[in-house]
Amino acid sequence: MNRIIGMNSFMGVKLKPLEPKRTTTDEIDHREYQKQYNYNPFRDKCYSQEKIRNHERFHLIQHFVAELEDKNVYSTRRNISGTPFGNVEKVQNDKVYALKKMRQVSTSDDIPKSVLHEIYMLRKLRHANVIKLFSCCVSKCEKNYRTFYLRMKLGKCDLDQLMFTIEVQFYTDEIKILALSLLEGLAFIHSKGIMHRNISPSNIVVTNQGVLKIINFERACDYNENGPNKKKPKRFNKGYNAPELYLKDINYGPGIDMWGAGIIVMEMFVRQRLIMGEGSLEQLNNMARLFGKINIRVYPKCNELPEYESYEEHVYYTKYPLFCSFLTLWVPKKIYKLIKSLLGGMMKLYPPDRLSASDTLKCPWFEMSPPPEKNVLSLMGRIPVSMSATVKSS
């Protein structure tokens, strides 16, 4: 007979009080571990080598995870905590690398799905402007747990530091190199049927050689170019989320990456954050101030989206958007029309109207003299000593 919680009797029969469940020492240790590392075993499945071989995607990286490296062969030079892309260690063996801490699981468990997902994405996306993955490492911890790490190329600093450090001066040619590198990386990612979904300055690093690299593919996912993409509209980066994510459109696509990239390129010119805000409402008002308010005329069928009524009620109307005014103040007159056309196409409010990454590469700005180089070594040479002491890794 099943008992109903809170009942003292059932059909006139007095029920015996339930005895409290006895908790073993192992269960207490496991609860402390879950609380400390915020790990949910039901959310992150673990895969054995046999299951990896039979998986429709993960079997492609079976050879990569067949033999996991021992993390202890690398000597830790510095722990870098609190970065937007997780806990990272700067380590050295024959060369200097970055170890990104992924998951901690029981030694009886196999490889977590989240680790396999990022390995799969990085192995599939081999490009000069995508961070390079070398191997997957594992380290045994106390209480019969082990931690997984990804060994990747080291980045000197992220784009967020470069853009919003007053002492670092940007020249137009350097902005062109960084913008072109970012768009070439996105064009390659999208050509593989993948959208990053987390494009922001903190997820873009520049190496010691001055080469831009896109990092952090934990949120990346496949998309269908010719059909509906019913994905949960999550907002990952405050200030770089596309309008369709705020309106909770489940059929979004790679246009969300193009919106974020457009905001980044514009911020490189104006050197200030454009759409930052404490909450969604403030961010939407900042967006309307720059690009105008969303309505049926500029965004067909927007009134059918779940959050449009709330948007219509709380976001004020801006008669004259400030997008062109910002560009007039900060963009050189010689390239003003080209930049206006490029950024205006990348940040259309209606997603199907946005330029694709491959289309942006045809912009005449990238063909103007002098031709863009492949790195920004000159910019890296101007990083102040105070900033070098706090550089981040990828």
Rank of each mutant, 00 (worst) to 15 (best):
M121A: 02
E282K: 14
F85S: 13
Y74K: 12
I131N: 06
L322H: 14
R219D: 12
S386P: 13
Y37A: 00
R146G: 03
S191D: 04
C141Q: 11
N216T: 04
Y308V: 01
V73R: 15
K153P: 13
W259N: 05
D110K: 15
V115K: 12
S108A: 03
S191L: 03
I119A: 08
A128N: 13
K140L: 03
D26V: 11
P384T: 01
L178R: 10
E218T: 11
K334L: 07
V205N: 10
L133M: 00
T83F: 09
G6N: 10
S369V: 10
L15F: 11
E142G: 07
N198Q: 06
L99Q: 14
V115D: 04
K16P: 15
G277V: 07
Y240W: 14
A187T: 10
F269S: 02
E267P: 08
R289Y: 09
Y33F: 13
R273K: 15
R123V: 02
N87F: 08
N203S: 04
N87Y: 03
G279F: 06
H59P: 09
G279W: 06
A179W: 01
P254E: 00
A187D: 06
T23A: 06
K101I: 07
F64M: 05
F64C: 03
V73A: 05
H59F: 10
V385M: 11
I250V: 08
V315A: 02
V73F: 08
Q209G: 08
K90P: 05
G155N: 09
K192L: 04
V13C: 11
N2G: 13
F10E: 11
D109I: 01
R354Q: 05
T76H: 05
K392Q: 12
L284Q: 11
P17V: 01
V298N: 08
T318H: 12
N203Y: 08
L150T: 12
R126G: 02
V115I: 05
M11T: 15
M121N: 09
V331K: 01
R57I: 04
F42N: 12
E304H: 01
Q92L: 03
S106D: 13
Y246W: 00
P20L: 03
F323P: 05
G381F: 06
E50M: 04
C141A: 03
K301Y: 01
D353T: 06
T24N: 09
I61R: 12
